[in-house]
Simulated assay, not measured.
Amino acid sequence: MLELQDLCKKYGRHTVLDNMNLHIEKGQLFGLVGPNGAGKTTLIKIIAGLLELDYGSVLVDGKQTSTKERRSHTKIGYMPDYFGVYQNLKVYEYMDFYTQMYGYKGKEAKNKVEENLELVNLLSRKDEYVDDLSRGIKQRLCLARCLLSEPELLLLDEPTSGLDPRGRNDIRNILNILQGKGMTIIISSHILQDLSQMCSHIGIVDNGKMVTQGPVEDILQMEEQSKPLRIRFTEVNSSLLKYLGSHVLISNLTIDGTQTTMRFEGDSMEEAKLLTTLIQNGARICYFAREEGNLEKLFLRITKGE
C-alpha cells in the first residue's frame, strides 16, 4: 500500500529524514515510534502531501506520486495530533460541513454523517458544541471526519496523546475495527504499550533513519533472545555446572546459590532442547525463563536511551 524509497528531508543544514525506506502492505496497522525530533511527524506530513520532500519517492498502491497528488489523494486520510475547528459548530454541523466538501448531498450526506458518528460512538452527541467536548471525544470526532473520504491509507499523528486510559482504549477499539475492514493504518505514538497491543507491525525511527521494522512478534522475539536466561534448581552439583559451562550456546554463566543466570544464544527451540536435556540428566528445575520482551526496553536500547 505504501513504499518509501530513499526519502530525504532537510531544514537548512539539519537532516530530518536521512534516506528513509519503508514498505507497508495493505491491511497492516503499522506503529511508528521514535524519540522527540526523530522525524515521525515530518514523515507523516510528507506521506500526506503536506510537506515537500527533498529527495526520494513515495509510492501509494504501487504508483509513484507527487506531493500535490498525495495532498488530494482520495485514498489517503490524515489526522493531526491536534485539530482546529470553526467556532460555534455542533458535532453534526462539523461533520456535515466536511461531508459536503467531499461532494455528498441530501440523504446521502445525512447517512454518511450518521454512519461515521456511529462508528466512533458519537451519534448520541451530535447536537453538542465541538468546543465543549473533551480532548478524547474531539479526537474521535476528528477520526470520524478523516473517514468521510473512505481512505484506504489512514495516517494518524499521535492520536492517543493526552488521552486517559478509557480514551486510548476507545481509539484502539475503533482502529481494530477499521483494520478488520481492510484499511491500512499508520499511527505514530509515544505510548509504546498501546502500539504493542494493537499494531501488527512497527518501525523504530531514530535520527531520521528507520532503525528497524517488521512484525511486532518478530521484533519482540529478537528482544527476548537478547535477555538473560535464568534457571533455578533445587540443588546445584559439579556435573551440572560442568555441563552448563561447556555448552556451546551458553556464556556469561553466573551462579547465586541454586539460581543460575546466563547468556543463551539459542532460539525458543534451542531453549526447549536445553530444558529437556537438563531434566533427562536428573536436574530438578523450579524456574526456567527469559525476561519477557518489552517494546519500551527495545525502544530505549535501539535509540541509545540505555
Rank of each mutant, 00 (worst) to 15 (best):
residue 186 I to R: 02
residue 237 N to K: 12
residue 277 T to L: 09
residue 221 Q to F: 08
residue 178 L to H: 06
residue 88 N to A: 09
residue 206 D to I: 06
residue 12 G to C: 11
residue 211 V to R: 10
residue 288 F to W: 12
residue 47 I to G: 01
residue 80 P to T: 05
residue 75 K to N: 08
residue 161 S to Y: 05
residue 281 N to V: 01
residue 226 S to F: 13
residue 71 R to I: 03
residue 194 D to K: 08
residue 207 N to M: 07
residue 46 I to Q: 11
residue 45 K to Q: 14
residue 173 N to P: 06
residue 11 Y to D: 11
residue 220 L to N: 00
residue 95 M to T: 09
residue 69 E to Q: 13
residue 43 L to D: 09
residue 178 L to E: 10
residue 126 K to N: 04
residue 241 L to Y: 01
residue 290 R to Y: 15
residue 177 I to T: 09
residue 26 K to M: 06
residue 9 K to M: 11
residue 86 Y to E: 03
residue 170 D to I: 07
residue 71 R to C: 07
residue 134 S to N: 06
residue 24 I to F: 00
residue 177 I to L: 08
residue 244 L to Q: 03
residue 32 L to F: 14
residue 174 I to S: 06
residue 84 G to I: 02
residue 218 D to M: 06
residue 81 D to I: 05
residue 20 M to C: 11
residue 252 N to P: 00
residue 187 I to Y: 04
residue 56 G to E: 00
residue 75 K to D: 15
residue 284 R to F: 06
residue 280 Q to Y: 13
residue 194 D to I: 03
residue 216 V to T: 15
residue 131 D to E: 11
residue 145 R to Y: 04
residue 255 I to K: 09
residue 108 E to W: 04
residue 275 L to I: 08
residue 257 G to D: 05
residue 58 V to C: 01
residue 248 V to I: 09
residue 159 P to I: 06
residue 286 C to W: 06
residue 167 G to I: 03
residue 173 N to V: 10
residue 100 Q to V: 14
residue 192 L to P: 03
residue 42 T to P: 14
residue 226 S to E: 15
residue 34 G to K: 08
residue 221 Q to E: 15
residue 42 T to C: 11
residue 229 L to V: 11
residue 182 G to L: 09
residue 108 E to L: 15
residue 137 I to R: 00
residue 15 T to E: 13
residue 69 E to D: 09
residue 108 E to T: 15
residue 44 I to A: 05
